[in-house]
Design a protein around this nucleic acid. Structure first.
Length: 154
DNA sequence: GCCAACGTTGGC
DNA sequence: GCCAACGTTGGC
């Protein structure tokens, strides 16, 4: 079972929204980056765990643990002409973008902040993708050792 | 296939 | 709102 980190802007969709969603489940759609797409399509599977990370906010950091409620499937928002994520290059016959359903397993007792993570970027969390300068991927794998260590920071 | 221009992300 | 670090686009 792989572990992941999903970035989101709480002003758009955050843990509060996920908690309020029916069955605390949502479709993680709108990913339009090929590297992130490849992670979703090729490696993410139902039951995988992921950190939910809030970006572009007062205290960026990990706020919750979510689980994949589905395997990946073609992202329907790419086919909707009115959707902001519409992509005329994507077709149902040859889908370009993928999504999956995600449910809220639990909020963390407190936010594990980006500052806290950065403080360990040189030892216990060395190589963690989210800590790499300029990294903008909204979906990144988390090594098992990193996953365990981060949970110990809670 | 190169690369400059442009758009986006995201911390600050 | 600034700006660095990307990814994407499109002319050549």
């Amino acid at each position: 079972m792989r572990h992941w980190l999903l970035k989101t802007e709480p002003s758009t969709f955050g843990v509060d929204d996920l908690e309020a969603a029916p069955r605390r489940t949502t479709r993680w759609d709108g990913v339009r980056n090929y590297q992130a797409r490849n992670f979703i399509r090729d490696q993410m599977r139902k039951g995988d765990e992921a950190f939910l990370y809030h970006s572009s906010c007062a205290v960026p950091g990990i706020v919750a643990i979510v689980r994949l409620a589905s395997d990946p499937y073609p992202d329907p928002s790419a086919f909707e002409r009115r959707d902001p994520h519409y992509d005329p290059g994507a077709t149902r016959q040859a889908p370009r973008w993928f999504t999956m359903d995600v449910w809220l397993q639990r909020r963390l007792e407190r936010v594990i902040t980006l500052d806290q993570l950065r403080a360990r970027a040189r030892d216990r969390l060395s190589g963690m993708l989210i800590l790499r300068a300029g990294n903008r991927l909204s979906v990144t794998p988390v090594a098992a050792a990193h996953w365990r260590f981060i949970l110990s920071l809670e």
